[in-house]
Amino acid sequence: MSKLAQKLKSGEFAVTGEIGPPKGVNIEGPLHEAKTLLKDRVVAVNVTDNQSAVMRIGSMAVCHLLKQNGIEPIFQMVTRDRNQIALQSDLLSAWVLGIENVLCLTGDHNNLGDHQESKGVYDLDSVQLVKAVTGLNEGHDLAGNELDGAPSFFHGAVVTPEYDPVELQIIKMKKKMDAGAKFFQTQAVYDVSTFEKFMNKIENFDVPVMAGIVVLKSAAMAKYMNANVAGVFVPEEMVQEMADTKKEDRKKKAVEIAARIIRDLKPMCQGVHLMPLGWDDTVPEIIKEAGLE
């Protein structure tokens, strides 16, 4: 059983990190950051899958490298780029490389990335992918064929607590749970009261939820996300707090805000997922300030 699974099952508060593979083969930088900033501080590290529909090194290869370096990976898998055969095949490949955690997502549309003329596959959606992983764990593929050796993935999915109307997200979350999702990571949360309302709505869902924490770097970033990023809402006071901070103090402020959100969210959920978006060096301090060491 993966460390992430053990931690969430034991009811201990879990912290995960994230790295985005680079565009090109220079993997040393991200790997170094993972080893120096994330290793032994977080229980597992998500590796994004061609995030933002921009072509990069694949998630599976980077997950494998993390594993070799003693870091437990969470293999993110989107349904945008592969059909049922490729998705299931890559899952089996990941398992034999020692990858135990999978996060199932749909993925940003091709049109948002750097290969806008490519064909979006979407043979499966995220709910169907969760079900496919569940099936592999049970020893059969989507076509019902028996496997010669089944994996035992700890697989999860995502939910957006600040989505409007939230009922649509909750219905889909329920479907992901019913399909076998064993944990959830959320889109970025800044408004603790909205998150609390969301958690109250799903209080009957018996599944661990890890709140997403995206490190807020500036007021401009907050405004951009409020205007353009779905399901992300940075409260006005927080935007102002960042705006009132001198440029050289922003990183410190970012740590302070993230740690404060985590402390407020902690009683409501089972873990947090840290997404530093390049400010990876803030992760150790956030963990420390949030009292998660």
Partner: peptide, 20 residues
């Protein structure tokens, strides 16, 4: 839905509009 999703929306829509 530009992704042809069958089990509900992705997380990408904002104010009822599509991410694309």
């Amino acid at each position: 839905c530009p992704k042809g999703l069958m089990n509900g929306p992705c997380g990408g829509s904002k104010d009822g509009k599509c991410e694309v």
